[in-house]
Amino acid sequence: MASDVIVRFDNILALDNFSVSIPRGVVGLLGPNGAGKSTFIKTILGLVEPVSGDIDIVGLDPRKDVMSIRDRVGYMPEHDCLVDSMSGLEMVTYFGRLSGMTKEDSIPRSHEVLDFVGLGEERYRPTASYSTGMKQRVKLAQAIVHDPSILFLDEPTNGMDPLGREEMLELIGKIAASDKSILVSSHILQDMEKVCQYVIIIDNGRSVAQGTMASLLDQDMTKRRMTVRGSPKSLQTFSEQIHRDFEETSISEEFGQMNIVFINDGSFAMILDMAKGHDVQVRSYVPDRLTLEDVFIRSMKRDA
């Protein structure tokens, strides 16, 4: 949990009264570049000193108990960070030992986590020869080798092919099932939607929205998706009236069929009457669930 955290780099306010409460499970940390996601993670790791505010990680304060916190945390950075001269196995073992494992413990444990992330015989090759997918797997393996209770994953699916992405998300789900807190930062919102149970949206160093995935996606129950057909002229006049009378979020036309997404908290009968008046047929009219992308864009616009 963080409350009113302020972090400043010279004249730049990186975190501005940042307050979040992070539950167990997979939590998504979303925000544009420079929003303060990495700064927040570094503040928790004790690499950056906050000017003011309180942070509580499993009952520990990064300012006083930074070493105990780091023992409980696993970190998978966004960028390449592998030691080129080491093999995957050597590297995971090495960072396991740096996290407090004995050599006798870290070697079998490294094999175990490399098996878990799906890195086979490649583990004996120098990491410099790895593909992006393999690198991401080794990065995840070094983050979990010491069995941390909190995991920070920065862009875990970055640069991976679709199959690799699916597997990475599956791995995150498996880790989360063992009662861990996982904070995932990613720009790929579809991935986040699949894996996260809770979402924090951050912009300009402030938390602009947060809540369970379900509550964020269901927050706008008045959004409707309607499909209509008719002559081009009828469709055009109908869409113009929808645009005038309702808050319309998107409109598209293809082969004489128009898809309109708009906000309607009134009755469907009124829409039917309007369609009849313009000589268009309503083919479908269904509630439209928000996507995480919609939530993200709305939060950004609201904040701007």
Binding site: D105, G118, D147
Partner: peptide, 17 residues
């Protein structure tokens, strides 16, 4: 590559100082 059908296993060893 590809994932083995194994789950995540915790580690309960003692940490060094």
């Amino acid at each position: 590559m590809g994932l083995n059908p194994i789950g995540y296993k915790p580690w309960n060893g003692k940490r060094t100082e």
